[in-house]
């Protein structure tokens, strides 16, 4: 009898899979609360994508002692990520609307990252190069693309998992940016 039950295992696994596939069909991508909300942006020390000798750290996002920094949208992307290519026009729109964007080229090679920006446009004020994914790990990203809104004090205020759709630009990102200004 026990052995017979064991034979049911493939069927059960398949049933669970079907439930997921069904939900996937009807599902709309939506944002999710992040564990990192209201935390300080993690410390990092990374070179920029275009210049291996220029290293940046957390002060990039926090401003100086007497002045507040800008509200920034940090976008984690990679050349290997097809969804990121689709996201670039939205990021460009945001940049055109005056949003300060910082890119994190996640688990990529320098050549491919630079080539990606050449091909799809570069909306970023600066791009950090994170080949080992250490900053991505500290940020708790699952993959790419993911975006974080960081306020003038360097505190994460909003986490957008996945692709920013054209609708998200007006309905989610810009209002969120305004909220923390």
């Amino acid at each position: 009898m026990k052995r017979r039950l064991l034979l049911l295992v493939p069927l059960l696994i398949f049933a669970v899979l079907v439930v997921f596939l069904y939900r996937g069909l009807s599902h709309d991508p939506s944002a999710r609360d992040s564990a990192k909300l209201a935390d300080r942006f993690p410390a990092f020390d990374l070179a920029t994508l275009d210049d291996p000798d220029r290293r940046l750290d957390r002060s990039l996002l926090e401003g100086g002692d007497d002045s507040e920094g800008e509200v920034t949208l940090v976008n984690v992307w990679g050349e290997w990520c097809p969804v990121c290519k689709k996201e670039m026009p939205q990021l460009q729109t945001l940049a055109d609307r005056g949003v300060h964007l910082v890119g994190v080229d996640y688990k990529d090679t320098r050549d491919k990252g630079n080539e990606f920006l050449e091909t799809y446009g570069d909306p970023f004020a600066v791009s950090l190069f994170d080949p080992k994914g250490s900053l991505g790990f500290d940020l708790g990203v699952y993959g790419a693309p993911e975006s974080f809104i960081v306020d003038g004090d360097g505190v994460i205020r909003y986490h957008h998992t996945g692709y920013i759709t054209p609708d998200d630009v007006e309905q989610v990102i810009l209002p969120e940016m305004a909220k923390w200004r």
Partner: peptide, 20 residues
């Protein structure tokens, strides 16, 4: 292949799992 789909259906957002 299915991971982005699973995440999506658990409300965890759209994502690409890439060559890495």
């Amino acid at each position: 292949t299915l991971y982005p789909l699973l995440l999506d259906s658990l409300d965890l957002g759209k994502i690409s799992v890439g060559p890495p």
